[in-house]
C-alpha cells in the first residue's frame, strides 16, 4: 500500500472497543480537555465551512437559489460536469477492473512497481495533471501543430477536460479492488475453471459478484472527485462560458464576479454530492467489510 490515505478510500475502522472498563485511562479533566480540543478543531475546520456553504446559498431565499441554478450558464456547467464524470468514471471503471484482475489474480515480477505507478496520480499536483496535457496537445504542444492542421480540438474542449479528469481520478477504482481481490485469492476462480467455466464466465459469475460493493464504492469516490476536480480542469478548459465550464469552474467565475449567492448555490450542489458520498461511504463500508 502506498499513498493509501490520499483518498476517501482509507477505511474508517469501526470503533467498537471491548466493553471492558479501562483501568488504564486518563483522568476525567484530561479526557474532557482532549475531546474538547478535538471537537473545537473539527467544528471550526469541517462543520462551520459546510454549514456556511448552504447558509450562503440560501441567504436570499429559495427562489433566487433556484434562479441561480437554472441560469443557462449554470445548467450548461452542470450538464458538462455530468458528461465529463460519466465518461471518465466509465473509463476508470473498466481500467480498474482490468488492472485489478491482472494484479490480484496473478503473481509476477514488478507488481509492486506497477501498483505504485497506478497510485502515482494521487501525488501529483492537479495543476501539473492539467499542464501535461497542455504540453502534449496545446497550441505550442508536441502535437499542437498536427492537431491544428486536422482541426481537432483537445485543449480548451471536452476531450482535454476528460483526459485531465481521467488522470486525476485514475487510481480510485483500481485501488479499491486490488487489496480486496488479493485478499480473496484465486481459489474460487480456480474452482470455476475446473468446473468448465470460461475466463469471462468466471469473471462475471464469480469474481464480479464477490467485489460488487467495493466496486460501487470505488465508483462513487471516483465520481465525487471527477465532478469536483478544479485545478487540472482549470488548466485545460479555457473557461469558455456555456461551453467548457464545469461546475467548479463556474463557481470560481461567479465568485470572482462577486455573484456570491449564485456561486454558493452551485457549490451547494457539489457539497450535497460530498455529503451523499460520505453517507454512502459509511453504509458501503459495512458491505465491503463483509466481502
Amino acid at each position: 500500500m502506498s499513498v493509501a490515505a490520499g483518498t476517501l478510500a482509507t477505511r474508517t475502522p469501526s470503533s467498537s472497543q471491548d466493553s471492558r472498563r479501562r483501568i488504564v485511562a486518563e483522568p476525567a479533566p484530561v479526557r474532557w480537555l482532549i475531546v474538547g480540543v478535538a471537537l473545537l478543531f473539527l467544528t471550526v475546520f469541517l462543520v462551520v465551512p459546510l454549514v456556511a456553504v448552504f447558509y450562503q446559498a440560501f441567504s436570499r431565499g429559495v427562489w433566487p437559489y433556484l434562479g441561480a441554478l437554472t441560469h443557462p450558464d449554470a445548467v450548461a456547467a452542470i450538464k458538462l460536469t455530468l458528461m465529463v464524470a460519466a465518461i471518465s468514471v466509465s473509463l476508470n471503471l473498466v481500467f480498474g477492473l482490468i488492472a485489478a484482475w491482472a494484479i490480484a489474480k496473478f503473481e509476477f515480477r514488478g507488481k509492486s512497481v506497477l501498483i505504485t505507478l497506478i497510485d502515482l496520480p494521487f501525488s501529483i499536483s492537479p495543476v501539473i495533471s492539467g499542464l501535461v496535457f497542455v504540453l502534449l496537445f496545446g497550441a505550442q504542444g508536441f502535437f499542437g501543430g498536427y492537431l491544428q492542421e486536422h482541426d481537432v480540438r483537445i485543449i480548451f474542449a471536452l476531450p482535454g477536460i476528460v483526459l485531465a479528469t481521467v488522470l486525476v481520478t485514475f487510481p480510485f477504482v483500481a485501488r479499491e479492488l486490488i487489496p480486496l481481490m488479493q485478499q480473496q485469492g484465486t481459489q474460487e476462480e480456480e474452482a470455476a475453471i475446473s468446473l468448465g467455466a470460461s475466463g469471462l464466465q468466471t469473471f462475471f459469475r464469480v469474481t464480479l459478484p464477490n467485489v460488487k460493493w467495493a466496486l460501487l464504492y470505488g465508483v462513487l469516490l471516483c465520481n465525487a472527485r471527477a465532478m469536483g476536480e478544479f485545478g487540472a480542469v482549470s488548466v485545460v478548459s479555457g473557461h469558455i462560458r456555456g461551453e467548457t465550464n464545469t461546475m467548479p469552474l463556474h463557481i470560481e467565475i461567479l465568485y470572482n464576479e462577486y455573484q456570491f449567492m449564485a456561486s454558493f448555490a452551485v457549490a451547494s450542489l457539489l457539497a450535497l454530492l460530498a455529503l451523499v458520498t460520505l453517507i454512502a461511504k459509511v453504509v458501503l463500508e459495512k458491505y465491503v467489510g463483509a466481502e
Partner: peptide, 27 residues
Amino acid sequence: GKRVFDALIDIPFALPTAVAGIALTTL
C-alpha cells in the same frame, strides 16, 4: 456525536476544492 464527527473527517477528501476555497474565504 462521535460517529458523525468520525464520518465528517473525510469532508476535505469529498468536498471539491473550489467549494472549500470559497467557503473558507467567506468565513
